[in-house]
């Protein structure tokens, strides 16, 4: 089994097609939608973690692209402005999946654990954390 995080961009005309349904039914992929902004008639974005057979995921991506979606592997979406960060650690107190932790005095970010909930973005007293999505 393979796990990947995909950043999907829907063209405006495609926003209402049930592509996630087809990923499950036709490719036996388990999708976990982490974030989504879908509006009828507008370009949409979806951050989805997919689990399935390696070949099935490749085929599923092919299917999504054939539907007109742009598919990219999710890049680091949480950005830390190190000039603003004072390493207080409050972000680690609100991070439920423990993607942000302190190792001694240093802040460590584990992207694989992040669910893009933005709790850290909101809590940061220095406004040093942003989410690019």
């Amino acid at each position: 089994m393979t796990k990947k995080r995909l950043d999907l961009t829907f063209p405006p005309r495609q926003s209402l097609k049930p592509v996630v349904y087809h990923l499950v039914k036709d490719y036996d992929i388990v999708p976990n939608i982490l974030r989504a902004q879908i509006q009828p008639g507008q370009e949409g974005r979806m951050l989805v973690e997919v689990t399935g057979a390696k070949e099935a995921i490749a085929q599923g991506i092919g299917f999504l692209e054939a539907q007109g979606l742009t598919v990219r592997e999710a890049a680091s979406d949480i950005r830390l402005d190190e000039d603003r960060c004072v390493t207080c650690g409050l972000c680690t107190a609100v991070c439920r999946p423990k993607a942000l932790v302190l190792s001694g005095e240093d802040l460590v970010f584990d992207k694989d654990r992040c669910v893009y909930c933005e709790a850290c973005v909101v809590a940061c007293p220095r406004r040093a954390i942003s989410l690019t999505f």
């Binding site: 004072v86 390493t87 207080c88 409050l90 680690t92 107190a93 609100v94």
Partner: peptide
Amino acid sequence: GAIEIKGKKVPTGPISSLKV
């Protein structure tokens, strides 16, 4: 990173910077 309160493991986080 965690303390026990009323038998429950509670995750902790500081607001005061050890680094600075």
